[in-house]
């Protein structure tokens, strides 16, 4: 198992290097000059040349990439073009919001998907409802869901504040209350996707002989479902968490925008619309690296959780 994890780690590193390099070259070379992006389409050639020189965009791409990575390792991601603020500072401020939102959403989505498709009573009575919920989860865009929730709970019923975020320092109650709608919004897609994968897996497992054996031991339906079927059905879902990480990141960007949460996603969107090249690049690199690392973690978790791999 250890060798397997080491091997995965060793393949992840080149992947990270390759994909960040690809991203870097695409934005600096292939798709046009960052100076052009920053100054807009009508900028004069002189202005572009001046900016190129100031930021070193005229150096060869590989040198730029090397310099960027070297600086990144020292915690220096450059300065925002619009605010002149340190990019690494901006990101460290934003990232806890995004991580918290994402973790709550995965947690809610996974547990709801597992509970609805495992509890014997629910499975029998709520099959149709779950199928519909799965469909809604994977086809309703995050912005539509978020706005609908705001309309329902804030505008119409007036139960929840529409502006989605309050820091922990405002009190845990207030913080969590404002977290409800964003988490519901972001978890919907995940719930649907998990539920579909898990349900198919569960149905497969339920046909296997050891389920009958467990019932023949005299175990209750609940115990058979949770102790014997669940762990086997949930294994493939673990890898799925990794695969759909990319989708989740996109969802987080939209969700943070809908609920005006001061997270990385919103930082990214405002950088995009402000043509703030250093921020766009830094967040992009961070997201790409993060997604690959999450994939890696999911793979390792699967390896550890599955005894058939663990003891081979």
């Amino acid at each position: 198992m250890i060798t397997m994890i080491v091997r995965r780690l060793l393949t992840a590193l080149p992947t990270i290097a390759a994909s960040t390099a690809l991203l870097f070259f695409s934005v600096t070379v292939i798709l046009g000059s960052p100076a052009g992006m920053m100054l807009g389409q009508d900028a004069s050639p002189q202005a572009i040349a001046a900016l190129n020189e100031k930021y070193g965009f005229d150096r060869p791409a590989l040198v730029q990439y090397g310099a960027w990575v070297a600086n990144a390792f020292q915690g220096d991601l450059g300065r925002s073009f619009t605010t002149q603020q340190s990019v690494s500072r901006a990101i460290t401020d934003c990232i806890p919001v995004t991580i918290e939102l994402t973790l709550w959403s995965i947690l809610l989505a996974a547990s709801a998907a597992i509970v609805l498709n495992t509890i014997p009573v629910f499975k029998r009575t709520l099959t149709g409802a779950t199928t519909l919920a799965n469909l809604i989860g994977i086809t309703v865009p995050n912005f539509m869901l978020g706005i609908s929730l705001i309309f329902l709970f804030s505008v119409w019923l007036g139960w929840l504040p529409s502006n989605g975020w309050a820091p922990w320092s405002d009190g845990a109650g207030e913080h969590l209350r404002r977290m409800i709608m964003p988490v519901l919004t972001l978890s919907a897609y995940y719930f649907g996707a998990f539920s579909i994968v898990y349900r198919a897996e569960y149905r497969d497992v339920a046909q296997r002989m050891f389920i009958q054996v467990a019932l023949a031991k005299g175990l209750s339906e609940w115990k058979v479902a949770f102790k014997h079927a669940l762990p086997n059905a949930v294994l493939p879902v673990i890898t799925f968490v990794g695969i759909s990480m990319g989708q989740l990141t996109g969802g987080a960007v939209v969700t943070e925008t809908v609920f005006s949460m001061p997270g990385t996603g919103r930082l990214f969107v405002s950088a995009i619309s402000g043509h703030d090249f250093p921020v766009v690049l830094a967040v992009g690199m961070l997201v790409v690296t993060g997604v690959i690392v999450m994939n890696l973690l999911a793979d390792i978790a699967y390896t550890i959780a599955n005894p058939q791999i663990r003891f081979d």
Binding site: T15, S19, L31, T249
Partner: peptide, 24 residues
């Protein structure tokens, strides 16, 4: 295969945002 796997793992919306802002 590795190229396909890499692209599938990457966040599509984020990628699309970056490319769109570059090409207009």
């Amino acid at each position: 295969v590795p190229l396909i796997d890499l692209f599938i793992a990457l966040p599509g919306l984020v990628l699309a945002l970056i490319i769109t802002v570059m090409v207009g």
